[in-house]
Simulated scan of single mutants.
Amino acid sequence: MDQPHFIFGHLPFWLVTYSLAVVGWTLFGRFLMQFFVPPDSRLYIWRFFRLLTDWAVRAAAFLVPRYVAQTWLPLVAAFWIFTFRLAFGITMLAAGLAPRLAPP
């Protein structure tokens, strides 16, 4: 068999999809946590969530109409991140740069 290694042979695919998954799920957690934590809280978990996801929330604010409330922006950003992750995965699979479970 002349197939590349399942992990190391497709490292760009794994790094991008894993990074997008971490940001997407952190956005979902930020959306849920914002109902219990004030926006200027000093909690280290909240600060980490904001540090990791502020760029995505700002991008979502740019993409959606202004009448969408600030409360919903993390959820909208999570939707866009997961959509981009799916499109990236399909594109990499079509290009033959993603791992396959069975030989083609």
Rank of each mutant, 00 (worst) to 15 (best):
W25Y: 13
F31V: 09
F31Y: 15
P65M: 03
G24Y: 09
V57S: 02
I90N: 02
A69Y: 10
W25L: 13
T83A: 14
F82W: 10
W72T: 00
I90K: 10
W25R: 13
A21W: 11
T17H: 06
A61D: 04
A95Y: 11
A59F: 12
L32G: 06
I81F: 03
L32N: 10
I81K: 01
D40T: 14
A77H: 10
L75H: 04
R85V: 00
L11R: 06
I45H: 05
L27A: 07
F48K: 08
G9Q: 11
R42M: 02
Q3G: 07
M1W: 08
A61F: 04
Q34V: 08
A21H: 13
F35Q: 07
R50E: 03
Q34G: 06
R30W: 00
V37K: 04
D40F: 15
A77I: 12
R58L: 11
A56K: 13
F82H: 04
L86K: 12
A60R: 07
R50Y: 03
L11D: 03
P38M: 00
L52D: 00
A102K: 13
I45V: 13
A77P: 11
L27N: 05
I81D: 02
L73V: 08
V37F: 14
L93S: 09
P38Q: 03
L52W: 07
L15H: 07
L63Y: 04
R42N: 12
F8C: 04
